[in-house]
Write a protein that binds this DNA or RNA. Structure first.
Lengths: 236, 236
DNA sequence: CTTCAAAGGTGTACAGCGTACACTCAAGGT
DNA sequence: ACCTTGAGTGTACGCTGTACACCTTTGAAG
């Protein structure tokens, strides 16, 4: 009685609020630190209350993916399949990049939820509607794989939080050391913008790298499409 | 005293045996079911004994990756960069496919261990030694990304253990149902070998799909290389 | 307004996890 | 024979997901 005279009657939970809060927490503290208990605490509720809105943690993750996938702006198919597919992939990339953990979670999901299927469906449609054969579209979908979500497997990712605090001259010394063992890696990893004489690269342009690979694939698809390529002739 | 008269003096643990046993267990019961306790039990040792040979579970996973990566047969660089790169990727694929969990684990590792760096190094070297500019090699490495390990992001993966038990006619009915909502997905997913009139596909040839995408990329790299492509002209 | 089922929220409890810390014990070098 | 060093043990802690039984609020029907 006396407890809640000032505060309005407690807002009720619902699935959407659970999912959105989970996404927000994952954005803040990282997906690995998101636990049912942490989430319930943020919602000012006891842990078990969540299970009235979400079957278990796996389904919570599924739901979080749905929230993000629904954020992807649909591409305009009117301009032809190629720019449309390009735009669509880059739109997905924008949405997923707002949630750094999303790549890993999407990849770990085995069951595809409706929103995910909707996205794949409309993406597939871009090629079909663009006149691609079903056969070629099949292979295209395989080839584009995770790239359709707007991410690549990053190779030279954030080298470590700690490294950021290492002074540049030490960093350079470490690099020279490493170059003895891994000359190619070091050469390549530092290839960007080293006109200034430093061997330390300034990091590289993720967006450029992504579009580089994407365009090679799209050009390849286009070429095969123009040639009327079919998988029938290509197999043993 | 009386305990061990028959059995020979207990074999001592070492890092290699820990890692190899961990790999074997993961192969058998899945990576998510591999715990320090389960592993110690298999080695007939108390859980904490493992920590004398491995710093923690993260490093155990790193070590497991090392074991697998060392299994990759090196490619013969004598035949030119293109077949060499192709062979190398397919060799990696063979090694990683023996351990279904390895893809996920490799992708989740942030720190690169020596064996991993060795592999990346030698792979990078194929392009450098093949006359690629460091610049182009850089972009090539980004573009090939996870494919360099021999995997793609699978889209139409194993649809579920349970589905295997569903009788074909039910499966077909489900597909017709789904086709209403996801016509493109269903068309594409069932595009292989349906000359027999059934709309149920017979699954698709992963290896073929993989090589399809790989060759598009390699052809693209070749074209850019022949053109003397550089990233300088391509940026905003 | 009363009644009553359904749905939402609580509390307790359990098995499992990774691992810190203090210990015992066996092997090898002096 | 002694002593150092490292391997293996035992106990304990805080964390996880969630089963199950319980209470409380809600909204509709009588």
């Amino acid at each position: 009685m006396t407890e809640q005279l000032a505060s309005e009657r407690r807002v009720r939970l619902n699935r959407q609020r659970v999912l959105e809060t989970a996404v927000a927490i994952a954005d803040e503290i990282g997906i690995e630190a998101l636990s049912m208990r942490r989430l319930s605490q943020e919602l000012e509720v006891v842990p078990m209350a969540l299970y009235k809105h979400v079957e278990n943690k796996e389904q919570l993750l599924d739901g979080m993916v749905e929230v993000i996938v629904r954020e992807i702006e649909p591409a305009d198919g009117g301009a032809g399949w190629k720019p449309a597919a390009r735009d669509q992939v880059l739109a997905a990339r924008r949405a997923l990049q707002r949630h750094p953990w999303s790549r890993r979670v999407i990849e770990s999901r085995t069951t595809k939820t409706p929103a995910v299927l909707d996205y794949i469906e409309s993406f597939t449609g871009l090629f079909i509607d663009g006149g691609f054969s079903v056969d070629l579209t099949h292979h295209v979908m395989h080839a584009i794989g995770g790239r359709m979500w707007g991410f690549t497997q990053e190779l030279f990712d954030d080298p470590d939080e700690a490294d950021a605090t290492v002074p540049p001259e030490v960093r350079e010394a470490m690099l020279r050391q490493a170059a003895a063992f891994y000359p190619n890696i070091v050469a390549v990893a530092t290839s960007m913008n080293h006109d200034d004489g430093s061997i330390v690269g300034h990091g590289c342009d993720d967006q450029f790298e992504f579009e580089f690979a994407l365009d090679i694939l799209l050009d390849g698809f286009e070429r095969l499409h123009e040639l009327g390529w079919t998988s029938r002739g290509s197999r043993g």
